[in-house]
């Protein structure tokens, strides 16, 4: 059994100077038949109370692995955490026992997933699935927990919440299902919410509603939000800071408006250039050439150099460090300043 917290405000974890999360030099490997895939190669991110960090990158760049490692829901094996620390309110999650980590998952750090239809259990009513949070973590009885679930469903604006609490996930639309996911994730008032591509499976109009809801809930509860996405459009309105990932490392970090105005890494430059634009109607869409590297056989030097238009000799031999180009802006490129200055 889990402990029953009588006073939910008496939280065990308190952020120091507003700092919720500090991920330091995180290394994760996957042991596959083709060899060792280095999924994360020294990832550093931090998150403060009430702010939104967007992690941007293509599929396979390591953004979901980062999220799952922070959550502690990575399957070990095949995954293996080979180094680093994840400090939550000053305490290293990687040094904690499994039981202590379980008490963080949900009440402290919680997560929503891309496809709510498969992420919700098909055989249990949605209310039951939300109520489960209160029953397991707070020790509430069935009917009290279900009442809480109804309140949450009302909070995420599900029409007729009280009548629909016993309905199953397949009886809802995609947007409503994602609202239920969100209700479940915020049930215990977590300090950190990780949203892994929360709107990718949804229509554009519904996407905007869901992002609006997330932003609203974040402001209401002063949550730290980590938004994982490959959609630059989603990021612009919501995020405060952006970390761009490529091949399991962070290649650029900056405040959101700086990145849009002026990228400092050729990869970010490429991502921004590949957004379809109305004023370039009739022209061919831009795409970054080539494919992300195979993580079991990383190219020597900078992992992006085979696809990079600015690559020179040094790029295939030396792996650039993530360095400050101008105050508050970091980029892992030998020619960051050149990129930044156009």
């Amino acid at each position: 059994m889990t402990t029953v917290t009588t006073d939910p405000s008496a939280k065990q974890y308190r952020p120091e100077n507003g700092r919720l999360l500090d991920v330091e030099e995180l290394h994760v490997e996957f042991h596959t038949q083709e060899g060792v895939a280095r999924a994360l190669n020294g990832v550093n991110i931090y998150l403060d109370q009430g702010e939104t960090l967007a992690i941007l990158g293509e599929s396979g760049s390591g953004k979901s692995v980062t999220a799952q490692t922070v959550m502690g829901i990575l399957d070990i094996p095949p995954a293996k955490i080979t180094g680093g620390a994840i400090r939550y309110c000053g305490q290293d999650l990687l040094q904690m026992g499994e039981e202590q980590r379980r008490e963080i998952r949900g009440p402290e750090i919680s997560m929503i997933f891309q496809d709510a239809l498969s992420a919700l259990n098909p055989v249990f009513p949605v209310g039951w699935q939300i109520a489960e949070m209160f029953r397991v973590h707070r020790g509430l009885n069935k009917s009290d927990a279900l009442d809480q679930a109804v309140h949450l469903m009302e909070r995420v604006q599900i029409p007729g919440a009280r009548d629909r609490v016993k309905a199953y996930p397949h009886q809802f639309s995609g947007g409503m299902r994602q609202r239920i996911m969100i209700a479940m994730a915020i049930a215990l008032d977590p300090a950190v919410l990780i949203a892994d591509e929360p709107t990718t499976a949804l229509d554009v109009t519904v996407q905007a509603q869901i992002m609006g809801l997330l932003k609203e809930l974040q402001e209401e509860r002063q949550m730290g939000l980590i938004l994982i996405t490959h959609d630059l459009g989603v990021v612009a309105d919501v995020a405060d800071r952006i970390s761009v990932m490529y091949a399991g490392r962070i290649v650029e970090k900056a405040a959101v408006h700086d990145i849009y105005a002026n990228p400092a890494h050729p990869y970010t430059e490429g991502l921004l250039a590949s957004i379809p634009r109305l004023d370039r109607k009739g022209q061919e869409l831009y795409a970054i050439g080539g494919l992300p590297p195979n993580l079991t056989r990383m190219p020597p030097g900078c992992p992006f150099h085979p696809r990079c238009g600015r690559a020179r000799d040094i790029c295939s031999s030396d792996d650039p460090d993530l360095l400050e180009v101008v105050p508050g802006r970091l980029s892992a490129c030998h020619f960051s300043e050149e990129v930044l200055n156009g």
């Binding site: 949900g106 997560m111 997933f113 919700l120 259990n121 098909p122 489960e132």
Partner: peptide
Amino acid sequence: ADYVRTAKAKGLTPQRTVGLHALRNSLI
């Protein structure tokens, strides 16, 4: 399955995750 990953993310015990969420679906 994704919903088992969700169950883990909810902070459920492995017993509950496997014995309730995964097994219930497997028994159909």
